[in-house]
């Protein structure tokens, strides 16, 4: 098990290094001068030169890269050109919105997907299955911002249970959590629809395995056999999707953040791009890559816990 974890750690660290090189190259090396790019077409040369010095671009490319990486490792993400504050502070604020939002949505989507995937698989070809499959098809097809607007209409405008948007900060945790409820539901529904379908097909495949027949021959009822033998085996493909979904939820919530006026990472990176604040874009992208790799690592460990056959491999 330890060897498996070390092996995964080595390979993911390599991915991290490769990703940082790609991000660095894309943003700084092509095309042209980032300082000139940030300042627009009409900037004069002295301003550009000043910004270059400011951004630490006055060395060789390798020096710049090393400076960027060592800075990030120490928690120095550079200074945002538009906000004039350290990127680390900007990110930290946003992360406290995006991370809880992503975690909440993921928990929600898993809680919805597991039972309905299970019910659909257990009733394959019957009315319940068709109903659930139709519902999930709808959940995938309908964009999440539409759900968001619907939720706002029903629960904020008509019922006044929640605010329609905004984020009060974590000073009052209850209020903060409350403001994340509708956005996380809107984010979770389409994810749950995908997850439920994966869960259903993984379970159906597992139900056809020989060891399910063995379980029944031992005297387990259909339900016991599914819960004791099928579920854990069906978990592997489901874990893969959960890992992918978390990565998406962390940064892919731009539209939902906009609908609910939440100051999240998605909005930060979006603003960074529109305002040509390349320092922000670069650092946030790198941070997201890091988050994705951490999640991948956790999913890999979860695989090994779920499936003993993986523990032996390096």
């Amino acid at each position: 098990m330890l060897r498996y974890i070390l092996g995964r750690l080595v390979s993911l660290s390599l991915s991290l290094i490769v990703a940082s090189l790609v991000i660095f190259t894309v943003i700084e090396v092509i095309p042209g001068d980032p300082a000139a790019f940030m300042l627009g077409l009409n900037a004069d040369d002295s301003t550009v030169a000043a910004l270059r010095a400011d951004l630490g671009l006055d060395g060789s490319r390798a020096e710049c890269y090393v400076a960027w990486i060592t800075g990030m490792v120490q928690g120095d993400f550079g200074t945002s050109y538009t906000y004039r504050v350290p990127v680390a502070d900007l990110v930290a604020d946003r992360l406290w919105v995006s991370l809880p939002l992503a975690v909440l949505s993921l928990i929600l989507s898993t809680l919805i997907a597991f039972p309905i995937g299970l019910i659909a698989a257990a009733n394959r070809g019957r009315a319940a299955d068709y109903g659930i499959m139709g519902g999930t098809q709808l959940g995938i097809a309908v964009p999440n911002f539409w759900f968001a607007m619907l939720l706002v209409l029903v629960f904020a405008v008509n019922l006044h249970w929640f605010n329609a948007g905004g984020f009060p900060g974590w000073g009052t945790p209850i209020m903060a959590l409350k403001s994340l409820v509708l956005p996380s539901i809107a984010l979770a529904l389409p994810q749950a629809a995908i997850l439920a379908r994966v869960m259903r097909s993984a379970l159906i495949e597992t139900l056809a395995q020989d060891y399910m027949r063995t379980a029944r021959a031992k005297g387990l009822s259909r339900r016991q056999a599914v819960l004791r033998h099928a579920l854990r085996n069906a978990l592997i493909p489901v874990l893969t999707i959960i890992g992918l979904q978390f990565s998406f939820l962390l940064a892919g919530a731009i539209i939902i953040e906009n609908v609910f006026f939440l100051p999240g990472l998605g909005r930060l990176i979006f603003q960074g791009i529109t305002q040509r604040d390349l320092v922000v874009v670069e650092s946030v992208t790198m941070l997201l890559v890091f988050a994705v790799i951490v999640v991948t690592f956790l999913v890999d460990i979860a695989y090994a816990i779920a499936d003993p056959r993986l523990r032996r491999r390096g």
Partner: peptide
């Protein structure tokens, strides 16, 4: 059954 390779739950 016939297939001992798959007749047991692998996990």
């Amino acid at each position: 059954f016939q297939e001992p390779m798959t007749a047991l739950n692998p996990v």
